[in-house]
Nucleic acid binder design. Structure first.
Lengths: 213, 213
DNA sequence: TAGATTGTTAATCGATTAACAATC
DNA sequence: TAGATTGTTAATCGATTAACAATC
């Protein structure tokens, strides 16, 4: 799947480079929102606290997107990055866990705005199962994960469940064909190498910062 | 402030090493919860998907915490890491933004359990200001940030506001003496070098993973 | 003692940066 | 043309890994 934009540059792109592309993309949205049409590696670098050389080097893994003496056309670069990151169509997403966090995630407009649509919600609490969230979403029991996720062809899951049940649910998600998990549970998940996981644990980030306080 | 645990090892500890300590600590909590008393760099490595050499190297920046042939006493290592990360006492925290996410964060028991206590909440919506969250917390207007944060001696803030107001609120927080910001707003914040920021933007993580799908 | 695992060294690997020719 | 900025190379910098003596 990397062939199309990688034909001339066939070495593997480092993960750390890929991880910065969404950051660049986010800056392009903001710059476009400010009415700008052109930017430069210097301007992006200043905003992001990186070096301009790093930005140019990162982008060079995927092609040539700028013009010497001018910089980058914001809309063009945005489209290229979206293409590289496979953001062409809407990605259906499954949410597991409808506690306070799950509730906030379902109502976060940012997901839909950026092409991620929560199309299935699961919880294990009997009094929540069957609850209608909106015109198209009804909370299903976690026992329905495999069936429902497969039927809907969902590849991305958001895990917003307590620590204790996270490993078990993870196994079920993988059985269901999930290939990417955004993990809000405060634990490292064990998954096959073809499944991607990104962890969001606010405690980990806070404890990182307190080191410097 | 690094003198006490760094006396013998006076080179700077790389940020990337510090960023893994909370992950190690989290594993120690889980291992302790399973009733284990001893672990090893191998066991931790297997659980975290890292190499055992990396874990030993990371820990060696701060001292010698294990026994040859045996491994690490879980409680002892936990206490040492907590000390290194300045987790001895309760850290008061300010929350800015009481939308769905702010609501979820205030009710997340994990913060208090790990020594982070939200002691001030701010919002700019007139109908939210004055609302009592619990026996000790009342939502204050954002115009009170400077006064209230200073009075309470708060050094850590959680930013859960919309993109548009994030830069302005950030400036106010810095004026108020905040030194660490957990940023949920979807933008890179510009702060002085003595202020730490950690960013949590789920879109960034999702877009990272879609590259590989 | 035999087996196991640490802490550390040196080598390897990989990422960032500086610099500049190309060129818009 | 003069000024600016890209894309890329080579050098530097830093992090990870392999290996093993020390030792519990």
């Amino acid at each position: 799947m990397t062939v199309s934009h990688n034909a001339k540059w066939n070495k593997e792109v480092p993960d750390i480079v890929v991880s910065r592309l969404p950051i660049y993309l986010r800056s392009l949205y903001i710059l476009a929102g400010e009415g700008k049409e052109i930017t430069s590696s210097q301007e992006l670098a200043a905003r992001l606290g990186l070096s301009s050389a790093q930005i140019r080097k990162d982008l060079s893994h995927f092609g040539e997107f700028g013009k010497q003496g001018t910089g980058y056309n914001i809309q063009f670069l945005r489209e290229r990055l979206e293409h590289i990151l496979n953001l062409g169509a809407v990605w259906p997403v499954a949410l597991v866990g409808f506690g306070d966090l799950g509730h906030a995630l379902v109502h976060y407009a940012g997901f839909v705005r950026k092409g991620f649509e929560i199309q299935a919600v699961f919880d294990n609490a009997p009094h929540k199962v069957g609850h209608r969230i909106n015109s198209t979403l009804i909370i299903e029991d976690v026992s329905k994960i495999k069936e429902s996720v497969r039927a809907k062809g969902i590849k991305i899951a958001i895990l917003a469940v307590p620590l204790e049940v996270a490993p078990g649910i993870t196994d079920v998600l993988i059985e269901a064909g999930i290939k990417a998990i955004l993990n809000y549970a405060p634990t490292t998940l064990t998954v096959p190498s073809n499944v991607k996981v990104q962890n969001i644990d606010p405690i980990v980030y806070l404890q990182n910062m307190t080191y410097y306080l």
